[in-house]
């Protein structure tokens, strides 16, 4: 095997390999981890977070504005404390509400932010006061059946 032919092949191989890596990096994946320098953290308490996971997206009006950074259980209030890491370029009013939503019937869960009307903005380490829990399918069905039963009884 000629030396230059061999070099050429190895060169092509390396280019193809790096190309594949770039393809994976740019076309397939995205860097969802917002770096700490240009972001801020707020917390929100929920009674039930359903199946929310760290790194789940935080969306407002359907646009991803941050990620769930951490989920803890507060052993005094018996509530889940969810830390949201939001990008600096998105500022939200102090009375913004957070809800845990599901994309589609069985899709992944995310945190939805609905902006309020306050002129003051949320700052780092602030707490979102108004929250809405995840919809748990079993509870929903339970409520539905209970309602039906009551309807039936009222008749």
């Amino acid at each position: 095997m000629n030396r230059t032919v061999l070099d050429l092949w190895v060169g092509l191989f390396v280019i193809a390999g790096i190309g594949a890596l770039l393809f994976l990096a740019l076309k397939v994946g995205s860097t969802s981890t917002i770096n700490a320098a240009d972001s801020y953290e707020v917390t929100a308490d929920f009674q039930n977070i359903g199946g929310l996971k760290p790194r789940a997206p935080v969306k407002s009006a359907g646009v991803v504005v941050g990620r769930v950074a951490d989920i803890r259980f507060d052993n005094e209030k018996y509530e889940a404390v969810v830390t949201l890491r939001l990008a600096n370029r998105y500022a939200f009013p102090k009375d913004t509400s957070a809800a845990i939503m599901t994309s589609g019937l069985l899709g992944e869960q995310y945190v939805g932010l609905e902006a309020g009307g306050d002129s003051q903005k949320l700052k780092d380490q602030d707490r979102i006061m108004i929250t809405q829990d995840a919809v748990v399918l079993e509870n929903l069905i339970g409520q539905f059946l209970y309602g039906k039963a009551q309807e039936g009884a009222a008749k």
Partner: peptide, 12 residues
Amino acid sequence: QMQGSVDFTQDI
């Protein structure tokens, strides 16, 4: 959908 759920550091 792929881009939304594949994370560069975590997965790739």
